[in-house]
Design a protein around this nucleic acid. Structure first.
Lengths: 349, 349
DNA sequence: ACAATGAATGTCAGCGCTGACATGATCAGT
DNA sequence: ACTGATCATGTCAGCGCTGACATTCATTGT
């Protein structure tokens, strides 16, 4: 019971295999009548193109690779899901590559895995996209790639950047509008582009409102890791640590912004442990609108990246015939207000 | 800059392409000396087999398909992640197919999508594995499949079954031992085998302790989806809805078991919103030991399936040359006790 | 009426690999 | 030394498709 081939259809209809191929590939140079007969025969015989043969003939794999971290975060599961959908629409397949930056470089991971697959394009989310060896390798192999919110050599490739700056500023303004005047920030390592941008934007937005630096207490992510000691921390644990550092002071902030939702959830948990009510005494906002934001109680005010759009654009750029010029595409980040933020308490005075 | 081919390596070493192919495919009939020279040349020239050509020649795609639901639960992200790893180890690729049973039958989804890919094998997690049309189609196409915890025609294929019954019974007994006597259950569609089994096991275990049906309030998953209206629900949202239905009553249960952790987290959130303290006034237990279980505060008591093992076995069965005989493999499920369950409150009397 | 155009369709090699089979070399047993 | 078995290696077609190019035929302008 062999599978149906182009040749079979050609035989049925009485044309050459090439003409059938034309119909399958939507080549316009086929007469409507012939096209119809061929389409019918394809339908009737249940013909399905052999992708391997096509790949071999065209020297394209119709595969798009994507690097994903070993631990499943909201951002990545959403990204993969959306990318998969987009790939299907473009007739591509998505190949996942698990990448643990703590064990191996992105370039090595690529060498070991995805490279065998001869992807036509690769999507490089944060961290993987900042490995210059990997980019060199990709260039050398002639594999196109799109980076998502990269941190280094921004001019080097097409990149899709969530507008972390504006999203962060929106959070700052939301705090300000609610009367907050003393702030805390749990900031990520400035080596991560999004971390640096969010930090600077938060501070910048507040300063432009007249807030002085002395009213913004900053806790560094790295210092929390150091404080924790071991390697078995979770983001929530670090968030608790950060929350304690910010809240267990003379004049604690009334509003805290963190690099992501998991950290924010930790801050909330710690505040509650200290008898500080959220949002009555303290407002907390995170970033990403992840599951953690909804699981947290009260639910977190947060900033949401349009992950599905980002994935769709990345795939489109890779799948599209015309090589898109190198450029940086920006995506809006929107503020999602939930119950973890409210009007500043009066009690301060 | 053409890619390196078998022929190129053959030319360098001075043997035929076939011999190189033998080395690549670990055919034992190659002399150690030749093998070594060829291996060196492959290494040196950076040869990588063309998977498409191989597929075409062998009529095998080296692809394993898997059906995943549109909303990302822990179970499925873990399953996909583990299956992906296992596939890599066996030299296979994993093709995801998003399947929404509420929109389309699994068979139709397969026709539209995965079928084009000509997978060598398909992994059918719950729901998809219970669509007999799909199984017929797969048999007809000569595509092997493994079902995970199927609900129907259990004899029909190799299946891997987590012991949901025993895991669920363990939860019920844990509740009972803590003095609970009024129960709530957020149950999945009985069409889903694991859903039906968990429902029946929970009820059965309680009844065998002398609990009457009137003391077990059941909320159906599907009815929650209907109640929600739109399609933009998350499991947590539905859990909250379910929690409200169970708790906002005359004689609310003191212990609630849900189909999975995300739902349980929703129940906890809703309970807290209603001013009900977990676990003082209410014990809640989920299933899966997902991230949600640890993010939730208090952390959830839950039952853990060995998802990685399940995925690895499924892939091994599909990738292994010798067709494994039809059989049902059983995997243990273990109870993980955390802070969301405790002794029943006295207040009832 | 005839060349020039262009649209519809066909021919064919070859993408890189492997399966089936053929060949030649080596070796044990008589 | 000769036979037959065993092992190492080679030959070659063909998997199903598409790109480059060739051919056929109807249409148009002059």
């Amino acid at each position: 019971m062999r599978a149906v081939t182009l040749e079979d259809i050609a035989g049925i209809v009485g044309v050459s295999a090439k003409t059938v191929s034309r119909v399958v590939n939507k080549d316009p140079h086929v007469s409507p009548a012939t096209r119809q007969r061929i389409s019918d025969a394809i339908e009737q015989a249940g013909y399905r193109p052999n992708l391997a043969a096509r790949s071999l003939a065209t020297a394209r794999s119709n595969l798009i690779g994507i690097f994903v971290p070993p631990a499943g975060s909201h951002f990545f599961s959403e990204l993969v899901r959306s990318a998969m959908r987009a790939c299907r629409e473009h007739g591509y397949n998505l190949a996942l590559e698990e990448f643990d930056g703590r064990r191996e470089s992105a370039a090595d991971t690529y060498r070991r895995g995805l490279r065998q697959q001869r992807c036509d394009g690769v999507i490089l989310p944060p961290v993987a996209g900042d490995d210059m060896d990997l980019l060199d390798l990709l260039d050398q192999d002639g594999v196109r790639y799109v980076r998502i919110s990269p941190a280094a050599q921004l001019h080097r490739s097409l990149s899709i950047n969530a507008d972390h700056a504006r999203g962060t500023a929106a959070v700052a303004e939301h705090f300000w509008a609610n009367g907050h005047r003393r702030f805390g920030l749990v900031a990520a390592n400035p080596g991560v582009a999004s971390g640096r941008i969010r930090r600077e934007s938060f501070i910048g937005a507040l300063m432009s409102r007249g807030i002085g630096l002395e009213a913004i207490e900053i806790v560094e992510f790295d210092s929390l890791v150091d404080q924790w000691g071991g390697t078995d921390w979770s983001l929530i644990d670090l968030g608790r640590l950060g929350g304690r550092r910010l809240l267990d002071t003379e004049a604690p902030p009334t509003a805290i912004f963190t690099y992501n939702d998991e950290l924010a959830a930790g801050v909330v948990a710690e505040a509650q442990a200290l008898g500080i009510s959220v949002p009555r005494d303290l407002s907390v906002a995170g970033f990403d609108d992840s599951d953690a934001a909804r699981l947290c109680s009260p639910a977190l005010t947060t900033a949401r990246q349009p992950i599905a759009d980002i994935a769709a654009m990345a795939v489109a750029a890779l799948a599209g015939e015309p090589q898109m010029p190198y450029q940086a595409i920006s995506c809006p980040v929107s503020l999602v207000v939930r119950q973890s933020t409210a009007t500043a308490p009066m009690s301060g005075f």
